[in-house]
Amino acid sequence: MFWLVLGLVAVWAAAALWVQFPHARPLALAGLGLAVLLLAWARLGPGWGWTGLAVLLILVLGWFFSLQPRQDRDWAPDVAHIVRGETEGSLVHLENIRTFRWTSADEAVEGWTSRTVDLAKLDGVDMITSSWGNPKIAHLLVSFRFQDGAPLTFSVEIRREKGESFSALGGFFRQFELSLIAADEADIVQWRAVPRAEEVHLYPLDLTQDQQIAVFLGFLRLGNDLNERPAWYNTVTANCASVVWKLARVLSSDLPLDRSLVMPGLLPEYLDRLGALAGPGTLDEKRARALISPRARDMPPGEDFSTWIRQ
């Protein structure tokens, strides 16, 4: 049992050190290796291996859980701000709405703006999935339509520093903070469908207006909370799907857990079983209607993106 526990602790600690010390990995891993060798000697020799293992575990966990999320890093431009807002009756005054216009997958004309929306004029909610390679792996976005204005899209994302890229391993070991981006669809949906050439589906949801408002206000609270108290992203427990699932629990407190929380590409199947996907037909027919990326790539200049992809 000792050797099994030691092996598990060593693998976990090695992964954490690999993520947290990218510029000093050889030194960090060498230090861990030395500690493991000393514990092996202690187990075979003096006999205090379990005591030494307990000390190592306390030190490693104490260091890891002392890592705190921050607001003041040198953020990548597309996650430089987190949406925040205030309510005034049915009106919501929002700041930090992203309006980038992407010229390639990595370059954009940057823009941030403010906007006031009227929740009494909410006209529908769409779930958007964007996948690359494996269709079971997707990014999840939620778009709110309004009678008197353009849709507004929310996206739970990692908050990368400049030069960083997504890492599933890093997401387990506190490499990234959590961010909530609010953007117009000509930014955040067009970016994934066209420059990034991902497969994007837009599924209208069957929600009452009260339910739509509840989910919108859930996103608003999340954005305000992250502005006040930064939080860590986690590949499983705090990702784009799991956070939206927590927000959706305002609709039903007993929503069942599902594998789509770790494989968001399966979320349409989950929502269809719950009766939350709008429109007639089978799931395959709904999925075929929902595919918007080919149409987005064919959009002629001058068209309104949100109107075009829904035609």
Results as ranks from 00 to 15, higher is better:
Ala80Ile: 00
Pro195Phe: 01
Arg249Pro: 06
Val109Ile: 08
Glu95Phe: 04
Val189Ala: 02
Glu88Ser: 15
Val244Arg: 09
Tyr270Gly: 08
Gly163Glu: 10
Leu119Thr: 15
Leu266Phe: 02
Ala138Trp: 03
Trp232Thr: 02
Leu27Cys: 03
Phe64Gln: 01
Gly218Met: 09
Ala290Gln: 08
Pro264Val: 04
Leu56Cys: 07
Ile128His: 02
Pro230Ala: 11
Val250Lys: 15
Ala231Lys: 13
Asp106Thr: 10
Leu140Ile: 10
Trp245Thr: 11
His201Ser: 13
Ala15Pro: 01
Ser179Lys: 08
Val244Ala: 12
Ala231Trp: 07
Tyr203Asp: 04
Val11Ser: 07
Pro195His: 03
Ile97Lys: 00
Gly89Met: 12
Lys162Gly: 00
Phe216Leu: 15
Pro22Thr: 00
Asn96Arg: 13
His201Ala: 14
Trp41Lys: 08
Gly281Phe: 06
Pro256Ile: 01
Leu59His: 02
Arg174Gln: 09
Ala30Leu: 15
Pro301Cys: 06
Gly171Ala: 05
Thr237Lys: 12
Arg310Cys: 13
Ile292Tyr: 05
Ala40Phe: 06
Ala276Ile: 12
Ala241Trp: 01
Arg273Thr: 14
Leu67Val: 05
Leu119His: 12
Glu303Val: 03
Asn227Arg: 10
Val194Cys: 07
His201Asn: 12
Trp232Val: 02
Gln175Trp: 00
Asp258Thr: 15
Leu122Thr: 11
Phe2Asp: 11
Gly85His: 13
Val200Phe: 06
Gly45Asn: 07
Leu274Ser: 12
Val194Gly: 09
Pro195Asn: 06
Ile292Thr: 04
Val142Leu: 15
Cys240Ser: 12
Ile97Trp: 03
Arg43Pro: 01
Asp126Gly: 07
Arg273Lys: 15
Asn224Phe: 10
Val79Phe: 04
Glu86Tyr: 14
Leu17Ser: 00
Val36Trp: 07
Trp308Lys: 06
Trp3Tyr: 11
Leu257Tyr: 11
Leu38Met: 10
Phe21Ala: 03
Arg192Tyr: 01
Phe21Asp: 00
Val5Glu: 08
Arg289Tyr: 05
Arg221Met: 13
Gly7Lys: 10
Pro77Lys: 02
Asp225Leu: 14
His93Ile: 07
Arg174Ala: 01
Val9Gly: 09
Asp184Cys: 06
Met263Ser: 12
Arg145Lys: 15
Leu202Lys: 09
Gly275Val: 08
Ile82Ser: 14
Ile97Arg: 00
Glu199Ala: 14
Phe100Ala: 03
Arg229Pro: 11
Ala76Gln: 11
Thr87Glu: 15
Asn234Tyr: 00
Asn96Ile: 02
Ala120Ile: 06
Trp48Arg: 07
Glu164Ser: 02
Glu88Ile: 09
Lys121Asp: 09
Lys121Phe: 02
Glu88Trp: 09
Leu291Cys: 06
Val92Gly: 14
Asp258Cys: 10
His23Cys: 03
Asp272His: 14
Arg84Asn: 15
Leu94Ile: 13
Arg159Asp: 02
Gly7Met: 05
Ser66Tyr: 01
Asp298Lys: 14
Gly149Thr: 08
Phe166Tyr: 15
Met299Gln: 11
Asp118Arg: 14
Ser252Gly: 13
Asp206Lys: 15
Arg196Asn: 02
Leu27Gln: 05
Leu247Asp: 06
Glu110Cys: 01
Arg310Asn: 13
